[in-house]
């Protein structure tokens, strides 16, 4: 607010973010460097405030959850007003394509069904934008910074009415050392409901 009152004559300037139209934001991009520094700061905050690696991942996932729950609202408004997915696969592909594209500018690299358990699904990203510059030191090798993305996904699933336990794992390959997989383990009510839909 203070910005816009300080410079009333600059009509050519872009309006402040709170005054912009919600629906006209598709090409809004943020600098990767600014984001990388912000995320680095979030990580060191999490390191300082937590007792162990699990605790730290929990913190990151909580950060992500707060982003996801707000982001879902915005993206549903922008991309698919008046529509709500009720089937599991539709929601998964919504995350895999729409959410990923809006957040990271690209579609996620893989969407798979878990081979061992029926209720598990996985989304993989070969080079997540947010952890592009982060090399986890050896003594913390279990840490997956993708926990943040996991938090976002968990919030979106919760918000859509598909509660799941979400965790992030590094699944590095020689070609993609930063590859991260988000594992979603769905609540059994979700699968039951999906079966009921199928029977109809």
């Amino acid at each position: 607010m203070s910005q816009s009152t300080a410079r009333p004559s600059s009509s050519l300037r872009r309006p402040a973010i709170l005054e912009r139209n919600l629906s006209k934001g598709r090409s809004n991009e943020v600098s990767v460097a600014a984001y990388a520094f912000l995320f680095a700061e979030m990580l060191s905050y999490a390191t300082k405030k937590s007792s162990g690696i699990q605790d730290m991942e929990k913190k990151l996932s909580d950060f992500g959850y707060r982003v996801g729950i707000r982001f879902l609202e915005l993206i549903v408004f922008r991309e698919r007003p008046g529509r709500r997915d009720t089937r599991l696969l539709n929601v998964l592909s919504f995350i895999h394509s729409t959410i990923w594209k809006t957040l990271f500018g690209k579609v996620a690299d893989a969407l798979e069904k878990g081979t061992e358990n029926e209720d598990e699904y996985m989304i993989s990203d070969n080079e997540p934008n947010i952890t592009k510059f982060i090399a986890v030191p050896r003594e913390m090798s279990q840490l997956s910074c993708g926990a943040f993305i996991g938090g976002v996904v968990e919030a979106v699933l919760d918000g859509c009415g598909f509660p799941a336990r979400v965790s992030a794992h590094s699944t590095a390959t020689d070609q993609f050392p930063l590859r991260t997989t988000i594992l979603m383990k769905f609540d059994k009510t979700v699968l039951q409901r999906d079966k009921t839909f199928e029977a109809r």
């Binding site: 995320f39 700061e41 990580l43 510059f133 090399a135």
Partner: peptide, 9 residues
């Protein structure tokens, strides 16, 4: 600048 300064560790 990318891989050293943007690394939180």
């Amino acid at each position: 600048a990318d891989f050293v300064m943007k690394n939180p560790f």
